[in-house]
Each structure stands twice: as C-alpha cells, then as structure tokens.
Design a protein around this nucleic acid. Sequence first.
DNA 1: CTTGATCTTCCAGCAACTGGAAGGATTAGT
DNA 2: ACTAATCCTTCCAGTTGCTGGAAGATCAAG
Lengths: 130, 130
Amino acid sequence: MNIGTAARRSALPAKTIRYYEEIGLLRPARAGNGYRDYSGDDVHRLKFLQRARGLGFSVEECRQLLSLYGDTHRASADVKALAATKLNQIEHKIAELQSLKKTLTHLVQTCHGDARPDCPILDELSGASD
Amino acid sequence: MNIGTAARRSALPAKTIRYYEEIGLLRPARAGNGYRDYSGDDVHRLKFLQRARGLGFSVEECRQLLSLYGDTHRASADVKALAATKLNQIEHKIAELQSLKKTLTHLVQTCHGDARPDCPILDELSGASD
DNA sequence: CTTGATCTTCCAGCAACTGGAAGGATTAGT
DNA sequence: ACTAATCCTTCCAGTTGCTGGAAGATCAAG
C-alpha cells in the first residue's frame, strides 16, 4: 500500500513515516513506480511506534523496543526494565511540574491582576527576595 | 564583569548567556579587549531569565515578561494572564503524564519480568488487542 | 486530456541550547 | 621574561523529532 494509506492506518503523518525510514526504523519495499510500498507488517511496526512514542518513549528507546520485539529469545525482564526506567522519568517529570504548578499558582493568586503597575509575579521573577 | 562571573552569579552556563545575547535578550557592554562586560543589571536580567525558564516559560515568553518588566506602566493583569496561561499548560501536561504513568504502571505490573520471552508490554505495544 | 490528488526528493527550519575547534587575552608562578 | 593554565572570542555543527515547502513525477477520474 502507498504511504498515505499506511499513514491513515498507523495514525502517523506521512512525513513522520518517511522520517522513521530515514533514521532506519523501517525499510518498506518500493513499487515499480518508485513509490514506497508498505506491507501489513510495516503498518504493524508503525502502529507500534505510534503507541510507544505516545507513551513517552524516545525514538531511540523505540528502536530498542522494536529490536526486543523482533528478538524471539529476549527476556521480558529487558523490556520491563526499559518501561520501569521510563516510568521513573515520568514520575520525576510529574513531580517537577507539580512544583512549578505550586509556585505559579501562588504567584497568580497573589497578583491582583488589575491595571496597577506593581506585580508580585515580576517581583518574584526579578528576585525581590534576594 | 566577565562572562564567567556572570555565569556563576546567574547560575546559567556561559554558552547559554551568549545564546541569549544572540537572540537579543540582553546586550552587555564590551570591554576594550573584546570581552563581554556584564553590569549588575545584566546579571539581574540573567537571573530573571534563569528563574522564568525554570518556571517553564519559553524563551519567547521570557522576552514578553522582560518587556513587561521593563515597562513601568504595564498592568499587572498582563503578567497575570501570561502566568495563568502557562499554569494551564502545566496542568494539562501533568494530566497527560499521569495518564501515561497509569498505563505504564499497569504494563510494568503485568509483566512478570523474568527470562521468559513473552512480555505483556510488547504485546500491548504491538497491538495485541487490535 | 486535463485536473487534482498523491507521490518523490531535497533543503530548511523549529526550540533551546550544547559541543568543539581555532585562536587571542589574561593571570599565576617561576 | 617566559611559560602554562585558564578564560575569553567567533564560528560551525549537532542534538531531538519532526514539520513545511518547493519542484517535479505519477496516478485516478471525468
């Protein structure tokens, strides 16, 4: 099938699919007219990528996952380790964002937000407490 | 003062400071030897940037904040609006990550994580439920 | 036979830096 | 005065993960 169809089936933009090919994540066949020709397996791979990227795995991690996926003898522990690491990173990121949220919430609440020129948010950013 | 000192005082790498200059966020003086010469105000500006970036404001948003900061007649409402928008984005991002976390937690828990080759994580990614 | 959609490649750019090379200036130590 | 280490300069390239656009081929429909 052509790239447009593969794009629809995998829920990935055609541009992204070409990019994934460029960085070696898949190698679709070519039809006689030079068009890329995607097999069901290729689409499967693309969906896998779409899901894994959506779960926050980096492209390099996706590459690892794909190779683990392709390796019928891999241990599930390897995959679990990768997922656990990613989970940790995500938790870390959440904690970080929650701390940002707390600070910003405080700032927004403190700011009277009218036409007056004094603003606690800028005061804080400018280091009024230094 | 030289860039190294400004870097230490603002907690920003020298490279980043030069980059901020390149994109027009500040314009330090130059000493006779061609070295950048940072004033206390420059460092203040750099600290402001360091804090605002740390709070998740994009460089462009920082530029806005700086111009609002420099404008003695601005309304605090303008700043508040910017901060509130950012707060919203952060909350959105947190929700997204929490959803990822939930899915990944589930996957990691389901995976037995031993030497056996079957792995629920890869099954899920490969779309076993399709 | 033409129109419009789809495909191809290539080149460029986004954010926000970061790294490194090549070379000039300064400072500390002898 | 000389040398070595450190710091400064500029410039160019790379990172991540795409995305946009131009120019040109191909295909499908009417």
